[in-house]
Computed example of a mutant assay.
Amino acid sequence: MALDPGHPRRHWCAQRRIGLTGGIATGKSTVAAILSGSHGLPVLDADVYARQLLAPGTAASQAVLDRYGQQVQTPGDALDRRALGRIIFAHPTERRWLEALTHPLVKEAFTRDLVRHRQAATVVLVAPLLFEVGLEALCSEVWLVDLDEGSQLERLLARDRLSSHEARQRIQAQWPLERKRRLADVILKNHGDLVELAQQVGMALAGQAREA
């Protein structure tokens, strides 16, 4: 898909900012590793920020413990992330509460580290909820790691040892991939062939992305 310089939801500046997104278990981390390892690009990751924000002793972690108590607490006062996940994905109101707590802090972390990497020609911003939260406004282009829904469910079940019901809850908590495809500037098809995926990444970096 060709990039549109008049896109109202893109950040236009001298620095190339690639927003990397996709559904859960579609392969965002794999693409991020290619961009970082093979191409040497700085990668800023929303999931890493979220883990740091919810580390023991942080204000956000304490807010979660105050709300849910022992049901999400481990013996060392760390958060039981699996227990927290079961709560927030089963109850949309609780998920919205947690998002309201963490998303502004994650955006602050992106903004802070974009300043730190302001001399880099290209920076990658990885965010599963890039569109949902409006983080595409920080990016000059958005790449979607795409996968058919059946394979997405299969990979999620294998990766996170969830029940089918739990896995579907997590997938449904994000925008459908079909909706994200219409908004992405570049679509990377991830069918499990790492060599082919790396080739697609190289083509996208060179501005030779395939039509979506």
Rank of each mutant, 00 (worst) to 15 (best):
L3E: 14
D4W: 06
P5E: 04
R10M: 11
C13W: 03
I18C: 04
G19L: 06
L20Q: 05
T26W: 03
T30C: 15
A32L: 02
A32G: 10
A32Q: 03
A33L: 10
L41K: 01
V48L: 14
Y49E: 05
R51D: 01
R51Q: 08
L53R: 07
A55M: 05
G57L: 05
A59V: 10
A59S: 13
S61Y: 01
S61F: 02
A63K: 12
L65S: 02
L65D: 01
D66P: 07
Q71W: 02
Q71E: 14
G76T: 07
D77R: 14
L79F: 09
L84N: 03
R86D: 12
R86E: 15
F89D: 00
H91G: 01
P92L: 13
E94T: 01
R96D: 14
W97C: 03
L98S: 02
K107A: 08
E108F: 08
E108T: 11
H117C: 14
R118M: 09
Q119F: 11
A120G: 04
V123W: 00
V124N: 01
L129G: 02
E132Q: 14
G134K: 14
L135M: 13
E136S: 13
E136C: 12
S140Y: 01
E141P: 07
W143G: 04
W143H: 03
E149H: 13
L156S: 00
R159L: 05
L162Y: 07
L162I: 08
S164P: 02
R168A: 13
Q172E: 12
L177R: 13
D185Y: 04
D185P: 06
I187H: 01
K189N: 10
H191P: 03
V195W: 07
L197W: 05
V201Q: 05
G202T: 08
